[in-house]
Amino acid sequence: MSIKEIAEKAGVSAATVSRVLNNPNYKCSSPEVRDRIWKAAIALNYTPNTAARNLKMGIQNTEKKVYYIGVLMTRMEKATTDPFFNELLRVIESEIHKQIAILTKVWYMPLFSNDKKCRRENLDQIIDGMYEETDQKCDGLIIIGKCNKEALKKLNQKYKSVVSVNRNSTNYEVDEVLCDGQKVAMMAVEYLISLGHRSIGYVGDCYNEARYRGYLEALHKHDMEPEAAYIMQTGQTEAEGYEAMQKFLQSEDRPTGIYCANDITAIGMLKYLGTNKNRYYVPSIIASDDIEEAQYTRPMLTTVALPKEEMGKFALYLLIDRMRGGHKSVVRTELEGKLMIRNSCTAADEGGWSDYCI
């Protein structure tokens, strides 16, 4: 299978296909073009160099075994739901390509991050169905996002070689690459506290969520009590961030600083402020992830960057090493977040931003 064949199936040039497959940061003319290319590559079982040709011809004496790898997205219904996970997926797709492996399937199944739904559903049947979709060609699985504990055990039993890439630890259930959400949230809230904020809100998932625990721990460390009115449980989408800021503006008691569990929620909040300007209430907003769009908001979003490139690369290294029998014990690789100070946070005694619109 050649790049030319993928280009023909996707309706783009071979040069565009090569750039997309090899560079996760390459910007296509539109997200739809990139999605078409990867769908074509998956459908055609594409691998670089001669690996696919050797498989097709039945040649077994290749230098390295070609592995079939699936990716399970547990926090997204589709590719456009959360840019952070989409950007992380781009890195992993390119790494699979570089490792001369075959990406067999990308599943978008938020069921696996919902404990209540996992208790109601027949997980064995769902997981068996996933495996059948790949014609039983799946040597390993990468799970991106939080996963129900029971579901994780069943996935590990089925696929044998599993790596989790996440902000929430699996507690050594499977190999994992972790950027600890609790530490990330503490870093963000500590920054707001350093600016003099004492009334600090939280917007995001609260149930069994490391970032929410980090928010509470940071407040406790500084002898600050969390206010129920400042905490908003959301599904972490732009639309729900927009609604959350609307609720804050309608409330009489409002926080001066807000930590959003992810960037896209914070962007929704900034968009609401941009269209409903209120000079008497301009909170400092900080988030975590550092998606591409965070640099282009007005004001530019202060956030804690997660090292997506390294997370994706280490996930592939761990998975391939396990599939090759290189290690048997469960391995955790933990990476640090980095505070990106921009314009959406100001000192508590200042009047807020001079401009807030997207």
Rank of each mutant, 00 (worst) to 15 (best):
D35A: 11
K56M: 14
G129Y: 05
R213A: 09
P299Y: 08
Y131G: 04
K153Y: 13
R211S: 12
Q99S: 12
A348M: 09
E217A: 14
L301Y: 02
S169V: 02
A10L: 05
K221H: 11
K221C: 08
K183C: 08
A348V: 06
V304L: 04
F248W: 02
Y280E: 15
F248N: 05
I286E: 02
L301M: 10
N54E: 14
R119M: 09
T134A: 07
V17P: 00
M186S: 10
N86W: 08
N166D: 15
S161H: 15
Q250V: 04
P299V: 01
G274Q: 10
W353K: 01
N276D: 09
G235Y: 04
V20I: 12
L270F: 07
E209L: 08
L44V: 04
V20T: 03
C206V: 14
M300R: 15
N343Y: 10
I142A: 01
L88R: 11
V106I: 14
P110K: 09
K277D: 10
L111N: 07
T275S: 14
M73C: 03
A218P: 03
L192P: 00
P31I: 12
E209I: 09
E336H: 04
L316I: 14
R167T: 13
P83D: 12
I144M: 11
L318H: 01
A218C: 10
T134W: 01
L319A: 11
A43F: 12
P24G: 06
A41C: 11
V71Y: 05
M269F: 09
S94W: 07
M1I: 00
I358V: 13
I6Q: 03
K98E: 12
T81Q: 15
Y26M: 02
E350F: 09
S344C: 09
M186F: 06
I258C: 02
V177L: 08
E63K: 15
S18R: 09
N61T: 13
I341V: 13
D253R: 13
K338S: 07
L216D: 00
Y259F: 15
Q125D: 11
R75I: 13
G337R: 02
V91L: 04
R332H: 04
M187Q: 15
D82V: 08
I144A: 05
S284V: 01
M323C: 05
A185L: 08
P307F: 07
L192E: 01
A185E: 10
N166S: 14
Y159M: 05
F84W: 11
A43L: 10
D289W: 02
G145S: 07
I100E: 15
I3C: 02
D263T: 07
T333F: 06
R324S: 12
L216T: 09
T346S: 12
H222G: 10
E176D: 11
Q233D: 15
V184R: 04
S161P: 03
V282N: 09
S18T: 13
D349Y: 06
S18C: 04
H197P: 04
V177D: 07
S18K: 07
Q233I: 12
V163L: 10
A348W: 06
V66P: 06
R279M: 13
I231T: 10
A41R: 01
Q250H: 11
D115P: 00
